[in-house]
């Protein structure tokens, strides 16, 4: 999923300060699962904002809603009525959702309420960790199912580097050395002999380096 964290309250307050009516929009997908921008978080943030401004003697009117998906035009359309009633939209979705609102409602301010973090998995309740960088040319099949691009701090494809210590990365004892994990997996799969195959320089065009990416599926077109 795409993970996110609520922005610091100070920053949020500054976004909302100049408006008297805002629409606070959550998203039912990833940000709900990582408890950053779902229905619950919309309720909490709305309450916190109202209290903050009431305290200053200002009445901020907040329309609260949560869409099934903020990254899909058909759901964004549902907001048309409420967007018409407000001065600005505060989005609790990931960056994709914020941009979809901006694209659809061209004359309305939209502000992100969360910082979109990474594509990750839930390691345990309340802990999410980065797993994928969306490089566009997956190597997991030859790295034992562990991604060196997302999980090695230097995205080294022929690791581990000289900083790997006790299974941990040189940048922090809290970070696993991806290449230790890869090597452990290779061993348990009986693929030790494959380790010495050099992985050549990558073509990063499939990644962000090739410019903004699109997927076009003619078979899906209406």
């Amino acid at each position: 999923m795409i993970t996110a964290e609520r922005k610091p309250m100070e920053e949020i307050v500054e976004c909302a300060r100049n408006f008297s009516r805002v629409l606070l929009v959550g998203c039912n997908e990833c940000v709900t699962v990582c408890a950053a921008g779902g229905r619950k978080e919309v309720g909490l943030l709305a309450s916190a904002l109202r209290m903050h401004f009431m305290k200053e003697g200002k009445n901020l009117e907040i329309i609260e809603t949560t869409l099934e998906r903020q990254c899909d035009p058909e759901y964004i359309d549902e907001l048309a009525d409420s967007v018409g009633q407000v001065d600005a939209v505060l989005s609790m979705a990931c960056g994709c959702g914020v941009q979809e609102i901006a694209r659809r409602y061209k004359d309305k301010h939209v502000f992100p309420m969360v910082n979109t973090k990474f594509m990750g998995a839930s390691e345990r309740q309340g802990v999410w960790a980065e797993r994928c960088q969306g490089c566009g040319d997956c190597v997991l099949g030859i790295t034992g199912g562990i991604c060196p691009i997302a999980r090695c701090s230097k995205r080294i494809l022929n690791g581990p580097c000289g900083g790997s210590t006790g299974g941990k990365c040189e940048i922090s004892p809290d970070v696993d050395c991806a290449w230790q994990l890869i090597w452990d997996r290779m061993k348990s799969l009986g693929q030790e002999d494959r380790y010495e195959e050099v992985m050549g320089a990558r073509d990063w065009r499939t990644s962000r380096d090739g410019g903004p990416r699109r997927i076009i599926r003619e078979d899906m077109a209406l």
Partner: peptide, 11 residues
């Protein structure tokens, strides 16, 4: 008890 209950009570 959820966070929102505590917030609403204060609000």
């Amino acid at each position: 008890v959820d966070a929102i209950h505590l917030m609403k009570a204060l609000e």
